[in-house]
Amino acid sequence: MNGNYLLKRVGQAALTFVATVTLTFVLYRMMPGGPAQALENVILQQQSSGGNTIDPERIELLVSQYTNLESDAPLYEQYYQYMHSVFIEQDLGESLYSNDTVTHLLAERIPWSMLISVYAMVIGYTVSIVLGAMMAFKEKSRFDSISSVVLIGLNSTPYYVVGVLLIFFFSIRYEFFPRGGRVGLGIDPGFNLAFMQSIAYHAMLPVFSMSVLGLGTALTMRGNSVRVLGEDYLRVAKLRGLRNSRIATQYVGRNAILPMYTQFMIGIAGVLSSSVIVEEIFTYPGVGLLVYDAIQVRNYPVLMGSLIVFTLITVIAILIADLTYGFVDPRISTGGDNE
């Protein structure tokens, strides 16, 4: 890997990150009924329910204090203030409806979202790789046909539909699992068996629901394996008398998995962002539920902070995949003339 290629890829990643944040900032500000208007509506609803009246100038002052931006400031000044706060001061702002900083809210919730996201991704991709390889070895068999139909059906079914069905059958109808939360009531947090069991118990349904996202790669693994099975070096390996297990793992499996490496890295961000709907369905207090609640009340700082984190994870995952694919698959020349 040459230095120019590395600088080019890092520069593209940085430019993509800044451009995404900038575009989202502008879209949020140009949308009718922005965060300032949402906060004004909340204040007006509170005063109407309490029978009190607040002077419009007082409302304007409260909005300015909460949003940390002048509502009548030009868009470019608001943009400069926000970008300076994020990139220079490393400050994502404060939530409009609490005294907590966005950084604190995200740091508190991201580990829980990563817990269910990582386990779902690992389970989904592991099952897909094993199932795809078995389908390729038994190509055109009944097992291959039935598995293909089932996988196509699952791949066409939204993961949140699976989540709703899981809630209905296993939480409401049969009460095997809890309907929400991440830890049972009355359990002391800490490194103890009861706490760990409660975490796993509450995370099981969200993990199973999100793991459906990774099952679609089984068809990709099957196609890669079928293509590899027709290569000449496999015939040579069989003529050499190598064991079938060695041929399956070192020749077929290894070469079939390589094209899925980039897809796996991008899937890291995809699974995390999909937690928004899953956590709302299962009432799982992670960053996804935080984002969903922020959307309902247009909590602008929380939405922008979450977007920055999701964008950063996506850009870094793609950058790592781009820079390391040449090491994973030596047949690909990273940074050469043909990128």
Rank of each mutant, 00 (worst) to 15 (best):
L61M: 13
L61D: 11
L62R: 08
L62T: 15
V63Y: 07
S64M: 10
S64F: 09
Q65D: 15
Q65G: 11
Y66H: 14
Y66C: 13
T67A: 12
T67M: 14
T67K: 05
L69P: 02
A73S: 08
A73F: 05
L75N: 03
L75R: 03
L75Y: 01
E77W: 02
E77Q: 07
Q78R: 06
Y80K: 03
Q81N: 07
Q81R: 09
Y82S: 06
M83W: 00
M83S: 00
M83H: 00
H84V: 00
S85M: 08
S85F: 04
V86Q: 02
F87R: 05
F87G: 04
F87H: 03
I88Q: 00
I88N: 01
Q90W: 07
D91C: 03
D91Y: 06
L92Y: 03
G93S: 06
E94Y: 12
E94H: 08
S95N: 10
L96K: 03
Y97N: 09
Y97R: 10
S98I: 08
S98V: 05
D100L: 05
D100E: 09
T101W: 01
T101F: 01
T101Q: 07
T101N: 05
V102E: 05
V102I: 11
V102S: 04
T103L: 10
H104I: 11
H104R: 09
H104F: 05
L105R: 06
L105V: 09
L106M: 11
L106R: 04
L106Y: 01
A107T: 13
A107E: 11
E108S: 14
R109G: 00
W112H: 09
W112F: 12
S113Y: 00
S113F: 02
L115Y: 13
I116K: 10
I116G: 12
I116E: 11
S117P: 05
S117I: 13
S117F: 10
V118A: 08
Y119V: 15
A120Y: 08
A120H: 10
M121D: 07
V122W: 12
G124E: 11
G124Q: 10
Y125E: 06
Y125K: 04
Y125H: 07
T126L: 13
T126W: 08
V127W: 10
V130Q: 09
L131I: 14
L131H: 10
L131M: 15
G132C: 03
A133E: 07
A133H: 08
M134D: 04
M135V: 12
M135P: 04
M135K: 13
M135H: 09
A136T: 13
F137Y: 11
F137Q: 13
F137N: 10
K138Y: 09
E139A: 12
E139D: 11
E139Y: 13
K140P: 00
K140H: 04
K140S: 03
